[in-house]
């Protein structure tokens, strides 16, 4: 069974990736996951300057999901290049570096800084984090999205993935912008904006008041987004949102995703990526296909 997948100029050994912000910088997981078997690792989003992140509470459990508002707590791009990248590059796994800028110029500058560095297979533009001001605007306006992706593409030969937010009226319209800008792939979705309240104390539970909902609770939203975007663009898609089992993975493939990222499940089942990888050849065989690509976008019409 050939598990490899092609996302624009990016080739991955298999379609099972782990999502940004749900896998630390991978070193944390070395004792629990055979990192070398993953199709790709997206480390926690980095920003130009170090960020302290939001005050606690940063996460709250909800029905079949969780809200987070970490606030892009990270040590900045230079610390990442000096201290995290050498470890990540040593793993022999495609490393897709997630970056977030406050402005178009900052995104492009960060892209240029990472261009050509050993061990970076692709960049994922986080234009969808709901927990910081700036950045998210690029994910809510198709024109800004197109200009941003095009600007980053011109600053590097490294493949570019645009990660979209579901918190828009038409995610397909934003995806078209990313495609027009030259994205190699589009990953979707980031978290759904939400809130939790302690009514007895009359207070929001999250330190930052609002946060992003993730986990099994948002899987139907993510599946819908992949389905709609697959109708609108030809760019390969990476499905994200509540994926925790091999059946979830296959549903995203059928809906139109060429690869998937496992996110929140890493928190409550650290071995999930390995379980899904082991089950993948059997599921593809059951679907009667010889490679992942043959099952992508094979959803039939009910009419």
């Amino acid at each position: 069974m050939d598990l490899s997948v092609q996302l624009g100029r990016l080739r991955l050994p298999n379609p099972i990736l782990v999502a940004s912000g749900t896998f630390g910088y991978a070193r944390e997981m070395a004792g629990l996951v055979d990192l070398g078997r993953l199709g790709g690792i997206v480390p926690k989003t980095i920003t130009q300057e170090p960020r302290t992140g939001n005050p606690p509470w940063r996460t709250v459990e909800t029905a079949a999901g969780m809200l987070n508002s970490i606030g892009l707590d990270n040590d900045g791009i230079e610390a990442f290049v000096a201290h995290h990248l050498p470890y990540l590059a040593s793993l022999g796994v495609p490393i897709i570096v997630s970056i977030a800028g406050r402005t178009q110029e900052e995104f492009v500058r960060m892209t240029g800084r990472l261009a050509g560095l050993t061990g970076i297979a692709a960049l994922e533009l986080n234009i969808s984090c709901p927990n910081v001001s700036g950045g998210v605007d690029f994910g809510t306006d198709a024109g800004s999205c197109e200009r941003l992706v095009a600007g980053c593409r011109s600053a590097t030969a490294t493949p570019i993935i645009a990660k979209l937010t579901p918190n828009v009226t038409s995610i397909a319209a934003i995806a078209k912008g990313a495609e027009a800008g030259g994205a190699d792939a589009i990953s979707l979705i980031n978290t759904c904006l939400g809130m939790a309240i302690d009514w007895r104390k009359r207070r929001p539970l999250l330190g930052n008041v609002l946060g992003g909902l993730s986990g099994p609770a948002i899987k139907p939203i993510a599946l819908r987004a992949v389905y709609q975007v697959a109708q609108a663009v030809k760019t390969p898609l990476v499905g994200i949102g509540g994926i925790s089992t091999i059946d979830d993975v296959m549903e995203f493939f059928v809906a139109g995703a060429s690869a998937v990222q496992l996110g929140t499940v890493n928190f409550y089942n650290p071995k999930a990526s390995m379980e899904v990888l082991e089950a993948l050849p059997g599921a593809l065989a059951e679907a009667g296909v010889k490679c992942t690509a043959d099952v992508v976008g094979t959803l039939l019409s009910n009419r």
Binding site: G21, T22, F23, G24, E28, M29, L32, K44, G53, P56, W57, R58, T59, E61, M66, N68, I70, D73, N266, F267, Y268, P270
Partner: peptide, 14 residues
């Protein structure tokens, strides 16, 4: 401190 993962990947329990 409230934790989501216990293994350092979620950055909640700061």
């Amino acid at each position: 401190t409230p934790m989501a993962c216990g293994i350092g990947i979620c950055f909640s329990c700061v």
